[in-house]
Simulated scan of single mutants.
Amino acid sequence: MNDNATILTTLLERAENYGITTFELFKLNAIDKSADVVSSLISRLAILITVVLSFIIINIGFALWIGKELGETFYGFFIIGVFYALLALLLHAFRHQWIKYPLSNSIIKQLLKKKHHEN
């Protein structure tokens, strides 16, 4: 009888250790995936900020050039402004298929991506 109690106690301890280890593994995988997604988003954000700043400066140059060609500087800014207003309407109309779905799919792929560890 004592042997059965010892075997049962050992089995319960192993089951508890397995549960704790599984939970710890789940936590570590979640942390790894979260860190991977966040670091990827931050690096892309840094690139995006640089591109946006360059784009703004180029657009100011275009606005000044168009304004000079038309005789009044503010004409160039109005033309560039109207262009971006139309672009914003187009992006709003197609936001799901051009932005939301591809971004969601990218994040999901990043979360489901398996890491290849070399030993």
Rank of each mutant, 00 (worst) to 15 (best):
F26A: 07
F26N: 11
K27R: 12
L28K: 10
L28D: 06
N29F: 03
A30D: 08
I31V: 12
I31A: 04
D32N: 09
K33S: 02
S34P: 03
S34A: 14
A35G: 10
D36T: 08
V37L: 06
V38Q: 07
V38A: 12
V38R: 08
V38K: 05
S39W: 08
S40C: 08
L41Q: 03
S43T: 10
S43E: 07
L45I: 10
A46C: 14
I49W: 10
V51E: 05
V52L: 13
L53D: 01
F55A: 13
F55C: 11
I56S: 07
I56H: 14
I57G: 06
I57S: 09
I57E: 02
I58C: 11
N59G: 11
N59A: 09
G61A: 08
F62D: 02
A63S: 09
A63R: 00
A63K: 00
L64W: 04
L64T: 05
W65E: 14
K68I: 12
E69N: 13
G71D: 04
E72N: 06
T73W: 10
F74P: 00
F74L: 12
Y75P: 00
Y75W: 14
F77T: 01
F78I: 15
F78H: 05
I80P: 00
I80T: 10
G81R: 03
G81Y: 02
V82P: 03
F83S: 04
F83L: 11
Y84I: 00
A85F: 12
A85K: 06
A85Y: 13
L86H: 01
L86P: 00
L86N: 02
L86D: 02
L87G: 01
L87Q: 05
A88R: 01
L90P: 02
L91R: 03
L91A: 03
H92M: 09
H92D: 11
A93R: 14
F94E: 07
R95W: 11
R95H: 12
H96R: 15
H96D: 15
I99Q: 02
I99K: 05
I99V: 12
K100T: 15
Y101W: 08
P102C: 01
L103K: 05
S104F: 13
S104L: 12
N105W: 06
N105M: 04
